[in-house]
């Protein structure tokens, strides 16, 4: 890369970090939004959410490896769709088979999702091995676009755009449809929804499916971002998604979106301006500060 005048280089670095941070925040949002909705409506802390991501990513990767006859772009899009479908179906089945029979027993529900998280990642390792598998995306995604002197990898735009589309779509769904209304009301007071003659449990499978799709999207996008799919990624991204959810306030989509952006940016800036690896630590620090500053507000929302 040709040497740029110093101030300009600083500016371009800042832009690159910001866009990359937003891309990362986009992925956190995709995972955290489902977690937050599921917790808000059902009181279930879903440890298997990382498994949804893994299943979606491997679904897409597997489809891609089978669709060898198709050219790169349609193959990628088809594979991504397969991944999304796999994520949705898997999540809906988890709700139906494992969560529903334990209705109202929240601790058991959490425990079951813990067992599932362990079993799914072990199963993926058993079938496809511990190593990361290359995930082929259209070459355009690997190229860069210049913005004010900064060379931004194109996949960042796709991540950000996808998250914005998902946010807008989810918002429209929650505001404009009857099921959306039921979910918003159920997050506030589930018992009262049933006391209006509504079988709120029918919405449970729906939020799981939505969470599954969003996590699968994050799985496919993380496949593009890293160029691979990998059995451990679900868990490591899930931990940051948990942090995003706690900072944002459970059950609030807007809070989750804001918090995802903040966490993504803080992580990127700290990694670059302080020291590599410090980004992750500063996110934990951020969480500590938020909890110290307003534990009542947070725990009130969480109760």
């Amino acid at each position: 890369m040709p040497a740029l005048p110093v101030p300009e280089r600083k500016m371009s670095t800042l832009i690159l970090l910001t866009i990359t941070g937003l891309g990362l925040g986009a992925m956190y949002f995709l995972i955290a939004s489902g977690l937050s909705l599921i917790y808000g409506l059902m009181g279930v802390l879903n440890f298997a959410h990382g498994a949804f991501l893994t299943v979606g990513a491997y679904g897409a990767w597997f489809a891609e490896s089978k669709l060898t006859a198709v050219s790169v772009l349609p193959r990628f899009l088809l594979a991504a769709l397969v991944g999304l479908a796999v994520g949705a179906v898997f999540a809906a089945l988890v709700e139906l088979v494992l969560i529903r029979p334990l209705y109202k027993r929240h601790i058991e529900q959490v425990l079951v999702t813990v067992g599932l998280a362990l079993a799914v990642s072990a199963l993926v390792v058993a079938i496809w091995g511990n190593d990361a598998r290359p995930f082929v995306a259209p070459s355009w995604l690997g190229e860069t676009t210049s913005v004010a002197g900064a060379h931004i990898p194109n996949d960042r735009w796709v991540e950000i755009a996808t998250a914005v589309v998902v946010l807008v779509a989810l918002n429209a769904f929650l505001r404009r449809t009857r099921y959306g209304l039921i979910i918003r009301a159920g997050v506030e007071n589930r018992a009262m929804v049933t006391a209006l003659g509504i079988d709120v449990r029918r919405a449970f499978m729906l939020v799981f499916a939505i969470g599954g799709v969003a996590a699968a999207i994050a799985g496919v996008l993380s496949g593009v971002y890293f160029g691979t799919v990998d059995p451990a990624r679900g868990t490591s991204l899930l931990i940051f998604a948990f942090i995003v959810v706690v900072i944002g306030g459970l059950g609030s989509l807007r809070g989750t979106a804001v918090s995802a952006v903040v966490v993504g940016l803080v992580q990127q800036y700290a990694n670059y301006y302080a020291s590599s690896g410090l980004g992750d630590l500063s996110v934990v620090l951020l969480l500590g500060i938020v909890l110290l500053a307003r534990p009542g507000g947070l725990s009130a929302k969480l109760a």
Binding site: I243, L292, S299
Partner: peptide, 25 residues
């Protein structure tokens, strides 16, 4: 002292986050 300021699920996540910090370190 910090994580016990919140309860239930938030406590679970905060303890998870602190442990993750240790792991990263």
């Amino acid at each position: 002292a910090v994580s016990l300021r919140v309860g239930g699920i938030a406590f679970a996540m905060v303890t998870l986050a602190f442990a993750q910090a240790g792991s990263i370190l």
